[in-house]
Design a protein around this nucleic acid. Structure first.
Length: 582
RNA sequence: GCGCCCGUAGCUCAGUUGGAUAGAGCAGCGGACUUCUAAUCCGCAGGCCGCAGGUUCGAAUCCUGCCGGGCGCGCCA
């Protein structure tokens, strides 16, 4: 079935050809007007063309409307309104066809799959493996995962990825911190490293370590028997052995242990939050496979590197950066930036046709140099897309929580899930657009009350299920929705539901293409609200005459379908029944 | 100082990419529902869309300049 917007677009184009206006001249936008009185779809074509053709928009609209050829069985009426809008009203018969098309195997949800199976890498969270996942990752998790699903929904092959910075100084510092805690608990006098990780979790980890033998440690490490985690190394022996090793070796063992434990936590937290990463990519692999040196060589070959004061610099100013950046420090160690270049270059080599990174706002200054490096390496423009997710401020007792890990006071994603549940958290994050700062009031979220619009969606779904359940109990045969039954929809509130459900494909496409998954949450809420209004308006659906009853039950079936599709995309569970509230 | 993001109802936020009378939830007030179990529904009130210019048929949306808030400006990661 042809999408109705395309049909109208073509008809309008044909109608304006005689003005010398062709497809490439104008982007015809058809949208659902805010006011139901204005029809089902509206075009501002005449308004846009008015200036160019030096014509009064309203007159022009009249001419276009008269010239446009449309099948009457689909478009019931064409009207001119306001300053020159052309409003179309879709016939009820066709509206029902669109509705049914949502559940056809080769229907509208199939038609929007225009991605051609192209592989897109979506990287998000990628938090340092130096502590439990912090709540600030929760927003990225919700967005990244939902965008991945959205991309799949429009026919791409999305690949969720997590980059693990398991190399470099911070990991050494992590090991030294754990070692110090361990030594102190074991009664040894060891100084805590300057800028070490002071989180309580490391103290607890050290305490547990005291009681563990090498067999237990090995067993814990075996939890990583998984292709993606081949880089996780389990230190040999146990901590009593490690602490007697020379300091450097000892630290390495504690580092490996801490990494193993923390990655275990992070992976479990992600699992609990409903995140599925196809790949966990380890920075250490870049070092071992010499990809870092190779990336540097390639940059050198392109003439994008120079040496100064014993360091190697990338000419990022050639690519719009405000200053050149160091790739290899004067002590010979590669910077994080160089590793990141190598990582993204490898991502490109792995055959992804596009890559999307979700970064925090504190990394925005990093974009131009990264894009510059990609360009210098010969990666096509636009291949790497960077989405900045603005900051989340967490409030507790009316005060802003300091999220600095090193100070040891922060809220974990697990704590958030304990307090409000994963679904509530995900939904709240997905209600906000990505580039707006967001205040997350933990006290409010804990209340589990009106601040949880997600419950409205869940209840609406449960309500639809229970209605169908009762119908079944009464022996009412519902079956699959058909055009014949749905034509008996009379009530305006029921039609309002129809008109909203029918937007599903377009909502998915726009949310995916604009990278604004938050539109899904708004849509799901709108459906829930309209369904509730309808339910309230059409009193006692089951007591109505058989034809109306069947029509409304079929509408209920379809509402359930659409809500569940939303639930899948957003990643929330929509149960068939809810606990009764006291 | 420079760069990025934000400023919309008392609060938290939407606003379909420049459209028609700027919306929702919460909080406040008033109703409905003795039910198909529901945290549901209806109504009222609440606005200088930070301020000032500009662009045009038309601006919360685009441009410029201010004001205010956040973040970033390392041979850190």
């Amino acid at each position: 079935m042809m999408i109705i917007e395309d049909l109208l677009r073509r008809a309008l184009l044909a109608a304006v050809e005689r003005y010398g206006v062709f497809e490439e001249d104008v982007d015809i936008i058809l949208e659902k007007p805010r006011e139901a009185d204005h029809g089902d779809l509206s075009s501002n074509l005449a308004l846009m063309l008015g200036g160019r053709l030096k014509r009064k928009p309203r007159e022009l609209a009249g001419e276009i409307a008269a010239a446009v050829e449309l099948p009457r069985e689909i478009i019931e009426s064409v009207e001119i309104a306001g300053p020159g809008f052309i409003n179309f009203r879709i016939s009820s018969g066709h509206q029902i066809e669109r509705l049914l098309d949502l559940i056809q195997e080769d229907g509208a949800l199939e038609a929007i799959k225009t991605g051609g199976g192209k592989r897109i890498n979506v990287e998000f969270i990628s938090a340092n493996p130096t502590g439990p996942l912090n709540v600030v990752s929760a927003r990225a998790g919700a967005f990244g995962m939902t965008l991945s699903r959205l991309l799949d929904a429009i026919g791409f092959d999305a690949h969720a990825e997590y980059y693990v910075n398991d190399a470099g100084r911070q990991i050494e510092l992590l090991g030294r911190s754990l070692r110090a805690h361990y030594m102190q608990l074991a009664g040894e006098d060891v100084e805590f490293p300057e800028n070490g990780y002071k989180g309580r979790y490391l103290e607890i980890m050290a305490g547990e370590l005291l009681a563990q033998d090498s067999a237990a440690i090995r067993k814990a490490g075996e939890a990583f028997d998984n292709e993606s985690f081949q880089r996780v190394e389990i230190p040999k022996g146990d901590a009593t052995v490690w602490k007697d090793l020379p300091e450097e070796e000892s630290t390495a063992c504690f580092s490996k242990y801490a990494l193993m434990k923390i990655l275990g936590w992070q992976r479990e937290t992600c699992r609990r939050y409903g995140l599925r990463f196809e790949t966990w990519y380890f920075e250490s692999e870049l070092h071992d496979s010499r990809r870092i040196e190779r990336a540097l060589e390639r940059l050198k070959k392109q003439g994008a590197v120079y040496e100064e004061e014993d360091a190697f610099w990338f000419r990022s100013t050639d690519f719009g950066d405000e200053k050149d950046r160091v790739l290899v420090r004067s002590d010979g160690l590669p910077t994080y930036f160089l590793a990141d270049i190598a990582y993204h270059y490898h991502k490109f080599q792995r055959g992804f046709e596009h890559a999307i990174d979700f970064w925090g706002p504190d990394h925005h200054g990093y974009i131009s140099r990264m894009q510059g490096a990609m360009k210098a390496l010969g990666v096509p423009d636009g291949w790497l897309e960077i989405q900045i997710l603005q900051q989340v401020t967490f409030l507790e007792d009316g005060r802003i929580l300091d999220m600095s890990k090193r100070k040891g006071q922060f809220v974990t994603m697990d704590a958030l899930m304990d307090e409000v549940g994963a679904d509530v958290a995900k939904f709240l994050f997905l209600m906000r657009k990505p580039n707006s700062h967001l205040d997350f009031d933990l006290d409010l979220a804990r209340q589990q009350s009106d601040v949880n619009p997600v419950l409205k969606v869940k209840y609406a779904h449960a309500r639809s299920c229970s209605l169908l359940g009762i119908a079944a109990e009464r022996g009412i045969e519902v079956g699959e929705p058909t055009a014949a039954s749905l034509t008996h929809i009379q009530d305006e509130s029921a039609w309002a539901v129809v008109r909203e459900l029918v937007r599903l494909p377009q909502v998915i496409v726009s949310a995916a293409k604009s990278r604004e998954p938050h539109r899904l949450a708004g849509y799901a809420l709108e459906i829930a609200t309209l369904y509730n209004q309808f339910y309230n308006q059409c009193k006692r659906i089951l007591d109505q005459d058989p034809e109306s009853r069947l029509a409304l039950l079929h509408l209920t079936v379809l509402t359930g379908h659409v809500l569940r599709r939303m639930g899948e995309l957003i990643g929330i569970d929509l149960p068939e029944s809810m606990e009764k509230r006291d």
